[in-house]
Each structure stands twice: as structure tokens, then as C-alpha cells.
Nucleic acid binder design. Structure first.
Lengths: 217, 217
DNA sequence: ATGTCGTAGATCGTATACGATCTACGAATG
DNA sequence: CATTCGTAGATCGTATACGATCTACGACAT
């Protein structure tokens, strides 16, 4: 039941460093020394460097030539931008997914939702972030829109950094849970316009909560 | 007057490989052997690999673990998706840029347009692609929206592969030229709504032309 | 004839070693 | 006293060397 580990060190390290950034183990603003990380994972620097290049493209860290890698700091401005971008793209993409999904696509999304709910029930915070992302991406049917999927993956990934800041809020979890179910049901029934509306609402509410949390902290 | 070369081999090689993919020297669908590229640039494989990881994140090539790198094939579907995404994001972002740009931002955009026109006048096709991208990105004022800038850079980069397929069309060049000037004037005057409309029209027309070119080829 | 297995060659992926660049900090200079 | 210069240590960036994986293809078994 484990994730099928990437065939390369770079791939595995990318996933593991990403997780450490998202969970805050590598704190925002902190420097990442490639020798230290390499030792931490028991490898040489080369796969570490490739992982860091990848994570930079995901917006999780900055590279300063000859000076090192730094976890990108958090900012209320970034949250606003990310959720604004998601609103520009995701509702319409989910509507299109609702129109074009076939049976396997719907099964896949249903399973993704089930896994997400299971993780939330078990309070497995770290996994729930990825599973939440996977569920939302399933609704856009990546097969149809690979580039859209790519863009949204990045946006979800960045937003996870902020979501985890207040993930202990059980009320929020329950509400998100309910919204996900409604959204999935509309989507799977091919009700494109309703799925679009629910997606927009879901993103707006999540974004607003995050902004509120960040501002009085 | 040369570009300030990146401080690292990886950076320089990224730029040079990108250019070769965009110009078709590395043809769509062809395999890229890291040893061959390394020999071509007179370096070892390591910076080449980092460049290829970066270019993958830009959507220009695919990586198959233990099997190699491949220039991503062109497809009408991808053009449609890229221009659809640009329409979702760029007009509103340009409008916002028009509202918030300060004097240096406007100077920078004006210069970018001038450089683009100069390249087009001199028929320097390879540079005009980058300069076109730079002009359009200047209008969104990257300083304000770094993530939006990032996303649009990727979309422009991918679309360049298709634009260059029919760049010899002088009529199109002249028309784009006129649209750019109108767009810049509205933008610099702070006419956000007009800049938004002109951006939308410009993207729609460009996308439609590309789709037409691709379909009867 | 078909399919499986195994080997050779090519290519990828990573470890090690080395050279280049940066930062910090103290000495020399005006 | 302020500033410049220069050196030492740390860290980054890349070349070289080696081991791992894949593909192609021919021998063998069915």
C-alpha cells in the first residue's frame, strides 16, 4: 500500500524534501545546504541538486547562484495570488472535466475522495495535503489537460504550505469534507455548471480562511 | 549589448537548449542524449542534466527514467490548451498591471516593445520570440505577481514553438506589431479595461491563426 | 514458428574528487 | 576612524569515474 517509489534517487528526494518544506520541517526562509541534505538522505549532492532545481520550479524555494538554496518565505501576498490564479483556472477546468470524464475517470476521482476522507478521519495531516491535491486534480481529468494539470499542481502545492498552518481546525475539516462530497456528486453526475460553482465557492472560502488566519498572526 | 550570461553552466546551457528546442534544431519527438549534448557544449553531463530537469518543468521535454529525454511532440491540442490558459489569466493580469504600474515599470515595458520592434524590423526571428515574451510579461509587472509571471512565462515559452512555425508570414508580423502598440498605449495610460480587451483579442487572434496553420499542414 | 531467456552494448544515474565563488573578518592604509 | 584589501573557511558548481538499468538481438526451448 506504499507509494510506488520513484525509480531514481532524484525523484525520491524531490518528494521527501517537498514534504519537509510543506510540513515546515524545513522552515520558511531557512537555508538548505546541499551537503547537509545529502548526508541526511545518505546520498551524494547530485540527486539533491536535481531535486532542488525541480522544487524551485514548483515555487517552493529560491536559488541564488554560488550562494545556496533557500526555502521561499511565506507571505499573505502569495496566498492571495495563488488563490486568485486558482479561481481563474480551476472552476472552468472542473466543469470541462465533468463534461468529458468517462467511467474510469469517475472511479478514479471517487477513490481519491475516499482516500482523502480516510486520511482526514485518521487525522493523518501530512498525507491529507497530497490526497486533497490529488482529489481536486482528478476532477479536471489530467489526461485531457496535461498543462492545466501541471499548473494547478504547482498552485495546490504552494497553497498546502499555508493550509497546514491551520489544519488542526476540525470545523474547517468537516466543512471541506462536506463541500468535497457535494462537489464530487455534481461532477460525477455531469452537472458541469454546478460543479463549476461549487469549485469556485470552495476555493473562495478556503482562500478567505487562509488570509484571515495569516493576517491575525 | 550581450545578454548577461548566467553565472553557472547549468543556466547557460538551459538557455541554449531552450533556444534549440524552440527553433526546431532539436526536433519535436527527437531523443536528447546527455553525453552528446555535453560534448556539444564542451561540458560534463551534470549541468546538462540540471538544464534538462529545468526544461522539463517548462513543458519543453519529457523525461523517462533510465531511458532518456525526449523533445515533447507538438500537437494542436496543446496549442488550444495553452491559449485557453493564457486567456484565463493574461487579460486580467495585464489590466491589473495597467492599474498598478509605476513610472519605471512603464519605461521598462516601453523599452521592451522598442527592442521587439527592432528585432522584427531586422527580421531576427530567434530573438523576436524571447522579446515578444518579455514585452507581454512586462505588462503584468512581474514585481507585483511573481507566480503569475512564472506561469505565463511557461505558457509563452511553449507557444513560441508553434509561433515560429509560421513566423515568415510578414502580414501577421505587421498586424501583431500594430496590436502591440495599441495595447501598450492603453496600458501605459492606465486604461485597464481597454488593455484587458486588447490583450484578449490579441491572444484570441494569435491562437486562432496558429490553430489554422496547424490544421492544414 | 513462437516465445523465453540471456548476453552485449549503449545510455542513464550517482559517488567521489576537485576547482571556483562567496562571505566573514582582520590587517593595512589613507 | 573609515575604508580598502587580502586571506581563510565554507559552500557551491562541475569534471571524472563507476555502477545500474534498459534495449536489441540472438540462442535455446517449447
Amino acid at each position: 500500500m506504499e507509494e510506488p517509489l520513484s525509480r531514481t534517487m532524484s525523484g525520491q528526494i524531490t518528494t521527501r524534501i517537498r514534504e519537509k518544506i510543506l510540513s515546515g520541517v524545513y522552515a520558511p526562509g531557512s537555508a538548505l545546504l546541499q551537503d547537509v541534505i545529502a548526508a541526511e538522505f545518505g546520498t551524494s549532492k547530485i540527486p539533491v541538486r536535481e531535486a532542488l532545481v525541480q522544487l524551485r520550479s514548483e515555487g517552493l524555494l529560491d536559488i541564488y547562484a554560488h550562494r545556496g538554496f533557500q526555502v521561499r518565505p511565506l507571505s499573505a501576498q502569495e496566498v492571495a495570488e495563488v488563490f486568485h490564479l486558482r479561481l481563474s483556472i480551476e472552476p472552468a477546468a472542473v466543469a470541462e472535466g465533468a463534461r468529458q470524464a468517462n467511467a474510469p475517470d469517475r472511479d478514479y476521482a471517487r477513490d481519491a475522495l475516499a482516500r482523502l476522507n480516510q486520511a482526514l478521519a485518521g487525522n493523518e495531516l501530512s498525507r491529507s495535503g497530497d490526497l486533497n491535491c490529488a482529489f481536486h486534480l482528478a476532477l479536471i481529468v489530467p489526461r485531457l489537460y496535461p498543462m492545466t494539470n501541471d499548473v494547478l499542481f504547482r498552485l495546490h502545492t504552494v497553497s498546502q504550505r499555508y493550509v497546514r498552518l491551520h489544519l488542526q481546525d476540525r470545523g474547517r475539516t468537516r466543512r471541506a469534507n462536506k463541500q468535497h462530497t457535494e462537489l464530487y456528486n455534481a461532477w460525477a453526475a455531469g452537472k458541469a455548471k454546478e460543479a463549476e460553482r461549487l469549485t469556485r465557492t470552495h476555493i473562495e472560502e478556503t482562500g478567505a480562511e487562509l488570509m484571515a488566519t495569516l493576517s491575525h498572526e
